[in-house]
Each structure stands twice: as structure tokens, then as C-alpha cells.
Design a protein around this nucleic acid. Structure first.
Lengths: 186, 186
DNA sequence: GACTTATGCGTACAAACGTACATAACGCAA
DNA sequence: TTGCGTTATGTACGTTTGTACGCATAAGTC
């Protein structure tokens, strides 16, 4: 009954299915929040039958955790690539400024997902490893350019500035960010 | 059937009921998250009949918004009181350090609630005023002691440091915080 | 081709959900 | 006391939820 697009019969072989479900999960979380993320909505977004949900994932929490893990790995990767391009300390500082306000790929969608992740982890301590893994990678990237104590403060500053800029746009201008980074890293 | 503690008949006059429901809502959010906050659970936590929910609040979102509003007002008040005690710039700096790591009343519960709030606002832009109201008060408190640009950076730093300390305990020590605040405010 | 095994899915089910609404319980005027 | 208008509640309704599971269908083997 669920007439689909292509190939006549019901799709049967579909090796990327699990990855597609995870992708669709992030999409649903971004729009509906964790509280509105259900098996059925994700299944529809990923264009898979409902039965696939419980087949590929042990539970809804399992699904959420894997989705959030993928999110953090992608973001950490972007972060890492950005910092690997920097050669001098000044260039690294400029990358920090980029990240603080604007960010390469920090869309509203991604910010929303991150905030959902924070809330989720706060309430499910067993998923804390998702956060610590992410932070370890960020810290590593920063420590290639700055001493540990500075890296730590820059990390926190990025966190706060990103959230503030999201909640109250035009909070911190680019020039202001540059000054802050200079103060913290000197 | 719902046998209760006191006064024989079913409690009928109860002027603080609405406030108690809001309080109970925060309790439920802290434990179950927004996604697990339902009329029934809040009603049980506040020890009121289910009908009271739709009587006092137009909808579940209405309830959540009022609860979050109360949360931010309380926190902003604590913040304000702390800064009003400070007389000199150095004392104000020390308050910032207090807030960054440890915080007077920043329990895990409250931090969890704040993260739930962020996620909620990100997904419900019509409630953004809860955040802007909060920030205006914080900013005001900070600007009694620091110039606007410094206040802005301290505010963001407090945000980031608080979250980091919550996610990865022992992230920023007290001495480290002192150094950071000095750098940002000089 | 025929047969076996592992993979994937449609469907059903009990529980929990938000909300509406008839009606009960109250304070108060007379 | 009686009557009335307000306030509050119990309950019922139609949906939606997570999850389990029998069965259809594919791949693998000869």
C-alpha cells in the first residue's frame, strides 16, 4: 500500500538504510525537538517502514544516542579541519574568531541540535561519553596552537559566545571577538 | 478516591495552587526533561487533580513557558543580589569567578533546567522573550561594574564556563577562572 | 530449478497522551 | 435558608505512542 517512488516492488536491498535513519533522526530532532521525535516520524522522514526502526535500533534512546554521536563527530571534524589549515598562532586566533561568531557550518539547525544534545546528556548521564569525546577532540585541536590553560579558556569562550550569538543575534561582533581572543591568548 | 492528607474533604480552597503547579513543573522537567513532562505527571507531582492543569493553563506549552519564566527570574535575581554586594571592581571580579565555577545556587538540577530551556527556546522562537529578559537583567548587573564590551565578554564566558564545568567536571579551576576574568576585564 | 536460512517488515496492542466539557462544590448576596 | 454565579474537578474521547512478533521475502547452496 505504501506506494513508493522507484523500482516497482518494495525496496528490499538498501545497505545505507541505517545511516539514512540516523540522518533523518537529526532532521526530526532539529524541527520537532527530542520531545517530538518518534519512531513514526523518523521512519517517514527516512522513507523506511516503521518496522525498520526497532529492527536497526534497540530503542528510541539508542537511536537518539547514535544520532547525537554522529552529530558531534561531524562537528568535531569540521573544527579539526579548520584548525589544521592554520599555520601560525595568529591564523589560529582568526579561526577561533570565525568559530565564535558565524562559524563555517554553524547553522541555526546545528545550534538547535547541539542544545538538544546538551539537554539530553544532562538528563541521561550514561551518554556523557558523547560529550567527553567531542571535547577531547576540540581540546586537541586547540592545544596544537595554544597552551592548555589558554585552550581551555578559548574552548569555554567559544561555547558561550556561540550560544549567546544564537540566542541574541548581534551580541558579539567580529571585532569584539578578535579583541576577546587576543586578551585570552596573550 | 484520591485520599489525601489533611482536612477531611477534598481540598477546595488553595490559593497558591498555580504557583505550586509551576514549581512542580520545574521539578518534573529537571527529572524527565521537557519530552517527559506531561499534564498527568505534573499534576501528580503538585498533588492536584488533572483537571486543574487545563483550568489554570491554556496548554502544555503555556505551562512550560511560565515555568521557564519563573526559573530565569529566580536565577537573574540571585545574580543581581550577588553583584549588588560587590562594591569595588575587584569584588565584582571575584563574584564573576564565583559564578563561573561553583556558583552560589547553581546545582546540577538548575543547570539541567537551563539546558532544557535553551533547547525549548531554540525550537519555540515565540518564547525568545524569556531569554532576552534574562539576559537584559544579567547585562544590567554586569554593567554596573564593567564597561559594556567587557560585560558582554564576561557574560559569554560565564555561559561557556558554566556549561563546561557541568559537562566535564574539574574543567576550569578557581585560579584559572581568576586569571581569565582578569584578562577579560583589564 | 528446489530447498534452507537469515533478513526485513506489516500489523496489532496496551498504555499514555492532550484536551474538552458536563457537573459538582463552593462563596456570597438576599 | 435559599438561590445564584463562579470556580474547580472527574471523566471520557479520539490520537498517538513504543514495542513485539508472525510472516513474507530475499540471498545462499546445491
Amino acid at each position: 500500500m505504501t506506494a513508493e517512488g522507484s523500482s516497482g516492488g518494495n525496496r528490499r536491498y538498501d545497505p545505507d538504510r541505517k545511516a539514512r535513519i540516523i540522518e533523518a533522526t537529526l532532521e526530526v530532532i532539529a524541527v520537532q525537538g527530542v520531545s517530538g521525535t518518534t519512531h513514526r516520524r523518523v521512519a517517514e522522514a527516512a522513507d523506511v517502514p516503521l518496522g525498520s526502526m526497532t529492527y536497526h535500533f534497540a530503542s528510541l534512546n539508542d537511536l537518539l544516542e547514535q544520532a547525537f554521536l554522529k552529530l558531534t563527530q561531524e562537528i568535531a571534524h569540521h573544527f579539526d579541519v579548520a584548525f589544521q589549515k592554520a599555520q601560525t598562532a595568529d591564523e589560529a586566533r582568526e579561526v577561533v574568531v570565525d568559530v565564535m561568531c558565524g562559524w563555517y557550518a554553524m547553522t541555526d539547525r546545528k545550534m538547535t541540535l547541539i542544545l538538544e544534545l546538551y539537554a539530553y546528556v544532562a538528563r541521561n548521564p550514561e551518554t556523557r561519553h558523547v560529550m567527553t569525546g567531542w571535547m577531547a577532540k576540540s581540546r586537541e585541536a586547540l592545544e596544537r596552537h595554544f597552551p592548555p590553560s589558554v585552550a581551555s579558556s578559548l574552548d569555554a569562550m567559544i561555547e558561550g559566545a556561540t550560544i549567546h550569538n544564537f540566542m541574541y543575534p548581534d551580541g558579539i561582533s567580529r571585532e569584539a571577538a578578535r579583541i576577546i581572543v587576543a586578551k585570552l591568548s596573550m
